[in-house]
């Protein structure tokens, strides 16, 4: 008899994800776009902030080396878009990871411990919900240098975890009455063991789904902040700020909108497919 290999929960999930063609295609596209965004600008003759006085607002394919045209100030749109993808991806992913970690731990702890601790922790969430987040961001950006994108991560992440905490707490409340939690208690598993080994893996399904929705949300939120002048500052660019600029020129130079918007739509669609695939892979019961 051959020994069956040891497969953990994550090993199984990975095997199931690999069988999902849409999710695998989406993740390949995400990886390709990310590689292009992080390494592409180095292979282009144009820096993202250099102005080419000879070619201002030229359309793509104009017989010069600006493949995707230039913007109003004569900056290469291809390089600027890649730079924008880079910034947007960083902000989207990092802010999501921050909100995920804080939200899951906060929500699971509050839901599992219950009683007064739960009450106090969730009131903190309620109060933070009630604060206008724009003020938080404005206060943070006056405390630090304007345009420092790490302050942006902090601000966006600090706002983004609230909904996640509520979702996880709700899931935890229904989970902790389950008999398998009681069984773990009866086996002598400690509070942290139950939270990390039983509660968190069981809430991961809804969390992943919500997280894939959060990444595009964070990217859009960042572009909104950029529009208010609180986000990425010129000459830096994010997808949001590029689309914003492009939208102002859309009647005369539509490519300035289409190029960054195309990248944004492709990325967001791929994240959704990947999220779908992850959900199927992480939930063995739905198979």
């Amino acid at each position: 008899m051959t020994e069956t290999p040891v497969r953990g929960f994550w090993g199984d999930a990975w095997r199931r994800l690999r069988q999902n063609r849409a999710a695998m295609t989406a993740s390949v596209v995400i990886v390709l776009i990310s590689l292009l965004a992080f390494f592409g600008p180095a292979f282009s003759p144009h820096p993202y902030d250099a102005i080419d006085w000879d070619y201002m607002a030229v359309p793509p394919g104009g017989g010069n080396d600006h493949w995707l045209g230039t913007d109003r100030l004569g900056r290469d749109l291809y390089v600027r878009t890649l730079h924008g993808v880079q910034i947007s991806l960083q902000i989207g992913l990092l802010a999501t990871v921050v909100s995920l970690i804080i939200g899951v731990l906060w929500g699971a702890t509050a839901g599992y411990l219950g009683g007064r601790i739960d009450g106090a922790m969730m009131r903190v969430v309620d109060i933070m919900y009630a604060l206008p987040y724009i003020f938080i961001v404005i206060i943070l950006s006056t405390l630090f240098d304007r345009g420092n994108i790490y302050v942006l991560f902090l601000a966006i992440g600090a706002v983004g975890w609230l909904t996640m905490a509520r979702i996880v707490r709700g899931q935890t409340l229904s989970l902790k009455r389950k008999e398998f939690i009681e069984a773990a208690l009866a086996s002598g598993v400690g509070t942290w063991g139950i939270l990390l080994r039983h509660i968190v893996p069981n809430v991961i399904g809804p969390v992943i789904i919500y997280a894939t929705l959060t990444i595009p949300q964070m990217i859009l939120f960042e572009s909104f902040l950029s529009f208010l002048g609180l986000g990425v500052q010129e000459p830096q660019a994010s997808l949001g700020s590029l689309i914003n600029e492009g939208a102002q020129e859309m009647e005369s130079a539509v490519w300035m909108l289409i190029v960054p918007a195309g990248f944004l739509v492709t990325l967001l669609t791929c994240f959704n497919f990947l999220g779908d695939g992850l959900r199927d892979a992480l939930d063995p019961r739905d198979r």
Partner: peptide, 18 residues
């Protein structure tokens, strides 16, 4: 030294564990 077997067999097993 003291263990328990529960009423609902499926609910007493963590669905995420082998």
């Amino acid at each position: 030294d003291m263990q328990i077997v529960f009423q609902d067999p499926l609910a007493s097993l963590d669905p995420r564990m082998t």
